[in-house]
Every structure is written in C-alpha cells, then in structure tokens.
Simulated scan of single mutants.
Amino acid sequence: MVLGTASVVGAATLVLGGVPAYAAAPHSTPASHQHDDSLRDLGAEYGLRIGTAVSPAGLQDPEYREIIAEEFSSVTAENEMKWETLEPVRGEYNWGPADELVEFAKENHQLVRGHVLLWQNQLPAWLTEGVADGTIGTEELREILRQHVYNVVSHFKGDIWHWDVVNEAFVDDWETGDFESGIHPERFWVQHLGPEILADVFRWAHDADPKAVLFYNDYAIEHMGQKSDALYAWVQEQLAAGVPIEGIGFQTHLSTEYGFPGGFQENMQRFADLGLDIALTEVDVRTFVDSPETQEPLTPALQQQQEDYWRQTIEACLAVRECVSYTVWGVSDEQSWVPGWFTGMGSALLWDENLERKPQYYVVQDVLETADAKHRTGRGAGRN
C-alpha cells in the first residue's frame, strides 16, 4: 500500500482486521547481539537494498536525516509522488518536495522507488469531482491519466529505480461477491476505464522511461490465498501478452493480531519464477500498545512476537534471490501511520518516538549479519 502518516491511504489496510489468522506459528528468538554495521552496509553484502519511506519535510530534522543517510540505501517518497500532491491544481505540477528527496538520494548514493502512478486513493479533488459531476468524460479521463503518467515518469526519468505502477487493484480475500478476474470492479480507475487500463499504464510508464523497473504493488498478498492466486494468474496473462510488468511489491503490513503469513517465502518465489523482481515495499509490524504517545507493547509476549515477524520477513527476502529490495514504511514510531488508523495499536517500526533503536532493529541487523553465506551470492541489486 502507499500509506501516508494520517491520510486516506490507510483505508485499504484497515480492512486487514477482517483477515483470518494465517497458518504459521511464531518461532522468534531475541537478537543475540548488536553490531556496528548499518542496515544498508549489511544489505549490500547480499546485493539487497534496505530502504525506508521518507517525508521530505522530515529531512529538516538533522537526526532523522542522518539516520536515513546512514542506515538506508533506497528511499520511497511517502506522499510526494502521489497525484494529489504532485498536481493539486489541474495543469500545475508541484515537483519541489519530490525533487528534494531525489537530490537527497543522489547526495547519499541511494536509489529511489517511485510511488505511485495508478491508485484509487489520494487523487486530486479536481479529478474526482470532475468525474463525479460529468464534466470529465471517459475519453478525457483516459487521456488525463495517460498524460499524467508520461509527465511524471518523464520528469523523473533516469532518477527512479523502481516504479510502483499499479497499486491495490485486486479484491481482498475477505470480500464477498462475484469477482471472476480478481480485479476489483469498483476501484476508481477500473470502474471508469475498465480492467484493461492496468496494462495500459504499464505500457505508458515503460515508454516514458524504459530503464525504470515497473512493479505491481499490493497489501495482503503475502500469503497463499484467493487474492495472491488471482494476481498470479493475471500477471501470467499480462506477461504472455507482452505487458512490461517487471516486479511484484509485497507491502508486508503485518500485525501480531494475526499469525505470520503462511507460505510467504514460497509465494514470493512463485512470482520470482515468472522472471520478476521481488520487493518488500512497506514493511511494518504493529501490535497492541499502552498509548499512542509511548507505544510500548502491552506484554513481553507481544514484543517477542513482533521481533519474530521482523526476523521472518527479512529471512524470507534473503531466501528468495530475486528479492532485491526491503523497505520499511517509515523510520520512527512517532511518524508511523498506524496509531492514527488502528485504535490501541502501534510500535510498528524500528526506531521509537525518540529515534532510539528498538529490539526490532537489532533483530533485522542480526539476521543480515549472521545469515547463511549462500545468500551472499547470486543476487544483484535489481535490473538497474
């Protein structure tokens, strides 16, 4: 997903509360020791980019800026490349904040994940209102979208490693109804332009920047199930038709309220076996906490479960050679979107509200430090 810190983007993951428990049981162990190496340096030993979502406004904080520069080798704009932020007034693009992040990445030898080209949320009011009142018809809407994709991808051409091209277009496992293709018929773009628009956006993005790696990105596809199966079948069809889909983004918003996704590694691998890159794009692990301010897990068992989920996500990524990117959705709990959307939950990230490293950080660091040597070979940093 593409979650902002307190924005409508959280709406899609809200429905995760209805997901049945997954099959796998926790088996976590605390981090055995702490290391001096940064996450980005440890990830580099595997050809794995360790990333985070960034708000350019937050870069004004020297401590926050230093953590991002030292610990991460890729960055994702949390909101600044979404349509409502880029073009709040029709025909007037606001490139400044996104350009600032790109420049920061260049200064710190980081890659940039572009986020996002087609999504039903965080669209500018002039667009949604125009469609609603009939002043923007179907043909014009398609042309507006096509031009937007070309404008955005061309503006950042050469600066973006991965683009999340299509985001959250498939029906969730817990939804009921006749969803034969798995593509949700009531999501904005499919509702107005038909399911074929998803392939068109990939083609337009590729035309605008042939070197950027193009991803489909979604939540709750980590486990084997109806949604991931439908996506898998659709991707196979699109690849056979020559649609330039080159990667799958597993958002990986997890919660201790549910079991760890069953078959996570195997699910990533089956997509990788189609010739695709794999990325964990928005990793966080929420749990029940004492308050939104301090965000301390309510019990040691919940803390242990969080640590185990972090361990399993990074281990699964390392085990799939095509997993080239592991992005955490934010730096500190103080900035996390979780408390604003899930009552009573938080502690979802690797740093606390005071920008102190949490046990979860050391779990990820420990896995990267001690993983089997076989994971250190045969993996590149993606198609670029």
Rank of each mutant, 00 (worst) to 15 (best):
E80N: 14
P210K: 11
T370A: 08
M224F: 13
I245G: 00
A69G: 10
V367Y: 07
Y93K: 14
E71F: 03
S347W: 06
L111S: 09
F215K: 08
Q60K: 10
A132I: 00
Y219G: 02
W351K: 06
F264P: 07
L16Q: 11
D207I: 11
N108A: 08
F260C: 06
A371L: 05
L111V: 12
S38V: 02
W337S: 04
D173C: 09
R379I: 04
P20G: 11
R146L: 05
N267R: 05
I197W: 03
A371R: 09
E322S: 12
Y232A: 04
T252N: 10
E307G: 15
V328G: 04
E80G: 03
A371S: 12
L141T: 01
W161Y: 10
A44G: 15
D178V: 15
D133E: 12
L239Y: 02
A169N: 03
Q122D: 01
R113I: 11
P300F: 01
N167W: 02
A125F: 14
Q120F: 15
R142K: 11
A316I: 02
A240M: 10
L276G: 09
Y216P: 04
G346M: 03
S291L: 02
H206Q: 12
T343G: 11
E237L: 04
L239D: 03
S28Q: 13
P88D: 06
M1F: 11
A53R: 03
L42N: 03
V9L: 12
A316M: 02
A98T: 02
A241C: 07
D99K: 13
Q110W: 02
A132Q: 13
V54P: 00
T377W: 08
V338F: 08
T252M: 14
L214T: 07
D308A: 14
F271W: 00
T281I: 02
A199Y: 06
R286N: 06
E87W: 09
A212G: 07
A301R: 15
V19C: 13
P300R: 10
I245N: 05
Y309D: 01
V9N: 15
F202V: 04
E246V: 01
E66Q: 15
Q269Y: 00
Q269N: 06
F288C: 08
L59A: 08
V363A: 05
